[in-house]
Simulated assay, not measured.
Amino acid sequence: MKFDNPEDIIQLTPQWDGERFPNGRPKVSEDVLRRMRKITLEEAWGPLWNRGYAFQFEGDFKIIHPQKVMVGRAVTAVMVPKRPDLHETLLKHGHEQEGRKGFFNQWVIDELVEDDVAVVDMFDKVHLGTYVGGNLSTAISTRTKRGGAVIWGGIRDNQQVVEIDNINVFYRGSDPTAIADVTMVGMNVPTRIGKAICMPGDVVLGTPAGVIFIPPHLAELTVVQAEKSQVRDVFGFVRLRDSVYSTAQIDAAWDTALWTDFLDWFENDGAASDYRHLTWETELAEAKKNERNGPQSDVRL
């Protein structure tokens, strides 16, 4: 076997057709990550749920910085309880065949780069299951700049970790013990976090409500749909405040007259300036089609 095997990662993520890291992990663009930081959990959840991705969210965490949003690309790891023969074989393989140093958790941290998030299934182990403490959290901070960790298990040195401002850590519990009696059986493989599944290269969106894992091939679509919903809401608030339209008109499928009003506002009002990379040809064409065929429901997810 190989830890962090490019052939396996590429085989597991065939719907991603963009840039990849040298190990095959999908590399969602920095622009999409930047824009992802401005959307809400529910805005990210909707497009995934509507496409059958029903197990992408987990909310049962403690959070080092509860009010901070965390966004990054997933580097995953799967840990299991220690079985001596398996443990010795895999540890020896990592050291002798792959040149890795230290214990399994250090191998994952050593792979992190800017904007990464370590996503670790520690099988909900807290006592003797503290995946990171002060030192490794500092290493995560140095390597990822804005990333962090999602650990279905424990951490230690909370008083030190909370002082690291530029990352966030989602975890199940704290314990003063060090990590022990665990073995890593996979790195950058499918990883279960509670009731959610995370794949290498997923975009991790951590919020005060919990964490959602966004498949890389759906990341830009998710951001675009969220941004379109946001800017339409801004327009709707303005027109409702000015009594131009009723709430029923704003909440229903827009006709071409309302779309024309919106597009004029969109191109000229400063409140829309951050959204002008968006295009609306599909929505306008749909409105024209609806007028010919009768009204259709307008699902804004």
Rank of each mutant, 00 (worst) to 15 (best):
S174L: 06
G206R: 01
E42T: 12
I250E: 01
H93G: 08
N290S: 10
R83N: 03
V80F: 02
W254I: 02
R292K: 13
F262Q: 04
S273D: 08
T191S: 13
W49C: 05
G24F: 05
D264H: 14
I214D: 00
H65T: 07
K68C: 00
T183I: 02
E19I: 12
W152F: 07
R276D: 04
G133A: 09
T13E: 01
F55W: 06
D121A: 07
A77R: 07
L278V: 07
I179T: 15
N166A: 14
N166L: 03
T260D: 08
E286W: 15
E98K: 11
R172F: 07
A118K: 03
S229C: 04
T279L: 02
N188V: 09
G236H: 08
P22I: 06
L136Q: 03
L301P: 00
R83E: 07
D269A: 11
V71C: 01
F213Q: 06
M122W: 03
A54C: 13
G294I: 12
I10P: 06
K38E: 02
K92G: 13
K195W: 11
Q15P: 00
T138M: 04
V203P: 00
T142S: 11
D110E: 06
R241S: 13
A74T: 05
H87S: 07
F235M: 02
G72D: 02
N23E: 09
